[in-house]
């Protein structure tokens, strides 16, 4: 939902970043306002996933230039957990398994870390159990998932639903969904997309990273950006994604190559 007057949540200017000394991001610009849903599309190796990890503060990715502002504040120096408690959420492409730690404990520790950062008291076990049971509905998860180790033995679809459950619980201002749709069957995709749609509201924003147009049939973006060689080379509406789907990336990349080369 585009509203010119709403608050700028994320402002990225000329962002450069390297991994192991290789430059992957070569000047990314992006502005996201409250209420908006953005999709970033691109081929493998275009820098999409790197972009999401740099935003979340992954230590393997070094920001070498530009700026990232979140709700007006520069976050370049913030630790990953500080970005998270400030309201940035990254749904992982490959959610990690944490053997021996129950999903319930993990969710409670994460939730209470957010409460503490806001100066609020930690929520006790019983109140938390009530809260999390409510949130399970968002992703149609069975309560039995809470007592299994985090993501251990989960199917691909269950892992992605678990990511959205965390998003529902932590209520981030900015959600970055890194290929949340990849590897999902159509039922799981509908569930995940339904969850995201339910959580999107005029006060928050979603950035979806994907290389399949299919997701955008279920979560309709306000903006579609195409990323290539570490830059956003063009931006359009939903129709841009449709064009990518029918024509492929080559033509669009060729059209914008001249601009990029400058």
């Amino acid at each position: 939902m585009i509203n010119e007057n709403s608050e700028v949540i994320l402002s990225v200017r000329d962002l450069h970043a390297t991994v192991d000394g290789t430059e992957i991001l070569k000047g990314v610009n992006l502005e996201v306002k409250a209420g908006e849903i953005h999709a970033i599309m691109g081929l493998n190796g275009s820098g999409k996933s790197t972009f999401s990890k740099v935003l979340a503060g992954h230590p393997d990715y070094e920001m070498t230039g530009g700026e990232i502002k979140f709700k007006g504040a520069d976050i370049a120096e913030l630790e990953p957990h500080e970005r998270a408690t400030a309201g940035i959420f990254l749904a992982f492409q490959y959610p990690l398994e944490i053997p021996g730690v129950s999903n319930r404990d993990f969710l409670r520790v994460a939730f209470n870390a957010h409460r503490k950062s806001q100066g609020e008291e930690e929520m006790d076990v019983f109140d938390f159990d009530d809260l999390i049971e409510e949130k399970l509905d968002v992703v149609k998860m069975d309560a039995a998932f809470l007592d299994r180790s985090v993501n251990e033995g989960f199917s691909g679809g269950e892992k992605k639903r678990n990511e959205i459950l965390q998003m529902a619980l932590l209520e981030p201002t900015l959600s970055i969904l890194d290929e949340t749709d990849s590897g999902l069957d159509i039922d799981a995709l509908k569930t995940v997309a339904g969850g995201v749609n339910q959580l999107a509201n005029p006060g928050n924003a979603v950035v979806m990273i994907t290389h399949y147009q299919r997701l955008l049939n279920y979560i309709v973006p306000d903006y579609v950006h195409v990323m290539a060689d570490g830059r956003i080379i063009t931006t359009g509406g939903k129709e841009l994604a449709e064009r990518l789907e029918s024509e492929g990336y080559e033509d669009i990349m060729a059209e914008h190559k001249a601009e990029v080369a400058v």
């Binding site: 393997d60 630790e79 053997p99 021996g100």
Partner: peptide
């Protein structure tokens, strides 16, 4: 390190993340 980052990205500081992983072990 990726498990630590996963927990950090949920708001848990690095030290607490390590403790949680050791606890899990």
């Amino acid at each position: 390190a990726n498990e630590v980052f996963y927990l950090q990205s949920r708001g848990i500081d690095a030290e607490a993340a390590q403790r949680l992983l050791i606890y899990g072990f």
